[in-house]
Each structure stands twice: as structure tokens, then as C-alpha cells.
């Protein structure tokens, strides 16, 4: 089990109903973690449309969640 902090931005925050939460997860990788979170919050974004970051750097979906890390699922960006 790893304890991670999840941050939400933009429409993902609206959908999750919070901007930050701490979760205990047994997910083997970040893809599995997203599947857990998406099911719990009813997130409609398919994982293929998102990127994921861990501790302020882009990460791979196959990376395992690190104990004590901050994980962010990143929907398509619209700056500029």
C-alpha cells in the first residue's frame, strides 16, 4: 500500500468535487490508480486523453505510485 496525495485541476476538480485528497492505494501503477479514482469519482475522461505527473514531473502510467508522493492527472491543456 502507498499513501499518495491527489491534486485535481480544471474540469477534473469539478468532477472529483475536491482539489486535493489523500488516498491509500494498492494500485500497482499509476494507470491502475487512475482506474480506482475514476471509478470512485465517476470521472469520464478515458486515461488515453490524460497525462500523469508525480511529484511535479511528468510520469509514465506504468510507474508505481511512490509512498508520500503527489500525483496529478492532467487533462488536455488550454493555455496560450
Amino acid at each position: 500500500m502507498a499513501r499518495v496525495a491527489l491534486l485535481y485541476f480544471a474540469s477534473l476538480r469539478d468532477a472529483a468535487g475536491c482539489e486535493r485528497e489523500e488516498v491509500e492505494t494498492a494500485a500497482a501503477d499509476l494507470a491502475a490508480l487512475y482506474a480506482e479514482v475514476a471509478a470512485r469519482h465517476g470521472l469520464r475522461w478515458p486515461r488515453e486523453r490524460l497525462r500523469v505527473a508525480m511529484d511535479g514531473a511528468f510520469a509514465a502510467w506504468s510507474d508505481p505510485p511512490r509512498e508520500g508522493s503527489e500525483v496529478v492527472f492532467i487533462p488536455p491543456v488550454s493555455g496560450g
Partner: peptide, 23 residues
């Protein structure tokens, strides 16, 4: 920057509710 930097627009309209833009 437009393609990669994690910044999002929440656009307000004069004819309806605001929304987040995700291209």
C-alpha cells in the same frame, strides 16, 4: 506552450454558463 504546459482556461460567456476548455 499551448500544447504542453499544464494551464487551463475557464471561459465565461455572455450567453450562458462558464466552462473549462480542454481541446
Amino acid at each position: 506552450v499551448k500544447a504542453r504546459v499544464p494551464i487551463w482556461k475557464h471561459e465565461r460567456y455572455t450567453d450562458g454558463p462558464a466552462q473549462w476548455l480542454h481541446p
